[in-house]
């Protein structure tokens, strides 16, 4: 297979990358694990590729006060293995450890994953559940975009042409218990449905909760009905059952049907995975 021809650039700084990317037909290349398959199939035919893969300032994972800061070029494997991520956003470590296969995790990056916004991706679901902030740099300066505003539609996010994700900021979830559970596609391992729960309890009562579901809809979605069903409960069987029904309703007619699973199945699986996620906390 052979992608269409393109001009290749390897900028030495983020500023230079942004400048190169402002040209029509230019696209960023990070790990290449979404872009190159699309170029091999000629679904994508960018005229210019700007290889940001060697911009070390976009690497690294650190904790700043009660915020976890993950550089856009951090790979799925680095995130899964990071003690900081395991402590402050355990479900992201889990989600990244289930992405594809070892080679995909070695080279695919979180920035590329979020920018690509495949509906079957794992990290967006966790990022949305944690109210993360996506930091970007573009020709017109820097922006901080809330995850809830960032994901717009299938393969569509709130990035201007030429704008780069520089880092992802996640409020520490270390005081909460978290889980990410997915139904993987048997061949690719992409999420047919994935559910993330981040919860705090005191005296057995759930007093803070965030739930997001991915894979099932065009973009990762917060399950507000399911959140209400569990908030204030003792997580007893009836509450879990009510939450499972609620998450199916939260997705509602937004659930997608494709050759692998129809909408009814995806709605039902969201409920099953939510119960599994709460039990795994």
């Amino acid at each position: 297979m052979c992608p269409a021809s393109f001009d290749y650039h390897r900028p030495a700084s983020v500023a230079e990358a942004v400048q190169l990317l402002s040209r029509p037909g230019a696209k960023a290349l990070a790990g290449g694990h979404s872009l190159i398959p699309a170029m091999n199939l000629r679904v994508a035919q960018p005229g210019e590729l700007v290889d940001i893969g060697r911009l070390d300032v976009l690497r690294g994972i650190r904790v700043d006060g009660n915020r976890l800061i993950i550089g856009a070029l951090s790979t799925h494997a680095q995130i899964a293995a990071s003690p900081e991520v395991q402590k402050h956003c355990a479900a992201l470590a889990t989600a990244c450890s289930t992405v594809g296969d070892p080679a995909v995790r070695n080279w695919g990056t979180i920035g590329g994953n979020l920018a690509h916004a495949d509906p079957a991706s794992d990290p967006p679901t966790v990022v949305l559940a944690c109210d993360a902030v996506i930091h970007t740099q573009g020709e017109n300066g820097q922006r901080a975009i809330k995850a809830a505003d960032f994901f717009v539609d299938v393969f569509t996010v709130d990035l201007q042409p030429g704008e780069l994700i520089t880092s992802i900021e996640i409020p520490s979830q270390s005081h909460r218990r978290m889980a990410y559970v997915k139904l993987p596609h048997p061949a690719s391992r992409y999420a047919v449905v994935g559910v993330c729960v981040s919860m705090h309890t005191s005296g057995g009562v759930c007093d803070q909760i965030a739930i997001a579901v991915g894979g099932a809809t065009a973009k990762a979605t917060r399950a507000t009905g399911a959140q209400s069903a569990l908030l204030g409960s003792l997580l007893e069987a009836e509450a879990l059952e009510a939450a499972a029904i609620a998450i199916s309703a939260d997705i509602g007619d937004q659930a997608v049907s494709d050759i692998y699973a129809n909408a009814t199945y995806r709605r039902a699986m969201a409920g099953v995975l939510l119960k599994r996620a709460v039990k795994a906390l």
Binding site: L29, G32, H33, I36, N40, A103, V104, N106, W107
Partner: peptide, 9 residues
């Protein structure tokens, strides 16, 4: 590190 060489320029 392992990489799929069909997915790398």
């Amino acid at each position: 590190r392992a990489i799929k060489s069909c997915t790398c320029f």
